[in-house]
Design a binder for these strands. Structure first.
Lengths: 151, 151
DNA sequence: CTAATTGCTAAACCTAACTTTAGGTCAAGG
DNA sequence: CCTTGACCTAAAGTTAGGTTTAGCAATTAG
């Protein structure tokens, strides 16, 4: 009825392109905090559109949801990022991107050095470099090469 | 007893740094094909050391196990890659790496253009680019942005 | 007023790439 | 011969990031 009652989850989904289930999941992960209307349905602030945009972009940069949550919480007052906040955050994004590009480039250069070599030796091959793998993949599914599980 | 009875799974694990459970898993995925000794235990060819090195390196390049299996099978006679095979395969690796580097670099350039903008607009922001995300992440957990699930 | 739409929750399911567990077998050293 | 330590299988568990399903309530369009 009232015009400023907030957005329904469906409207938010349509506007962001996210699935309704994804939005509920993000709430469960603490990324957004809708309130409930009389009937128990979620209602979202218009600022959540921007908040979700931020989430989607940060995911492209390879951040996990917990990391994104922390970045959102790190904003003064826990507010949605403003223009000024964004400039600060992007610097961090840029560093992260630069690091990933550097890692991949090094990997490629090693590969170039190895083409035609064919050694694939565990001791000598420059391609076999667990450190870089860890750097690029963030933390993989479970154990990284170099961890020491049993059996 | 005989010297050329093949490697035990434990020896292979020690030499490659892989967990024993991982090697069994790779066998289940068809990446290696050990034979069994009288008592039903796995015995591996020395060539499997190299084969597993190949698997580990290919993983660094972002290939999935099924893709790696296909590459190994694609070798004439299904043999372990030789020096010549390796040169051919590395060309494919290089293309894949180049593509990833290009994607990340574009993303970084877009970010540079956006620093200080702070729009985060779903319609206008250059950072919001589902195509590139799909390109970089391979296929994500389930749906990519741009797919249209229900509810 | 009522049907269709939309929303709600909890719990199970999904993929990839493994690990862990449980319950038993094999092999090697002394 | 006997005791470790290495191996075996099958099945269930793990993580991330969601989706799907089932069964039911609230909204909204007509």
């Amino acid at each position: 009825m009232a015009i400023n009652d907030g957005l329904t989850i469906g409207a938010l989904a349509t506007r962001t392109g996210l699935a309704v289930s994804a939005i509920r999941y993000y709430e469960a992960q603490g990324l957004i905090k809708p309130w409930r209307n009389g009937g128990g349905q979620r209602r979202f602030a218009r600022a959540d559109l921007r908040r979700l945009s931020f989430v989607m972009i940060a995911q492209q940069f390879g951040f996990t949801l917990p990391q994104i949550r922390i970045q959102l919480e790190g904003l003064p007052n826990g507010r949605t990022p403003t223009k000024a906040d964004w400039a600060a955050i992007s610097a961090g994004f840029r560093d992260s991107l630069d690091a990933r590009i550097t890692t991949l480039t090094k990997l490629r250069d090693n590969l170039d050095g190895c083409i035609g070599c064919g050694c694939l030796s565990l001791e000598a091959c420059a391609l076999y470099n667990p450190q870089d793998k860890a750097a690029e993949n963030g933390q993989g599914p479970r154990y990284l090469m170099g961890d020491v599980p049993s059996n």
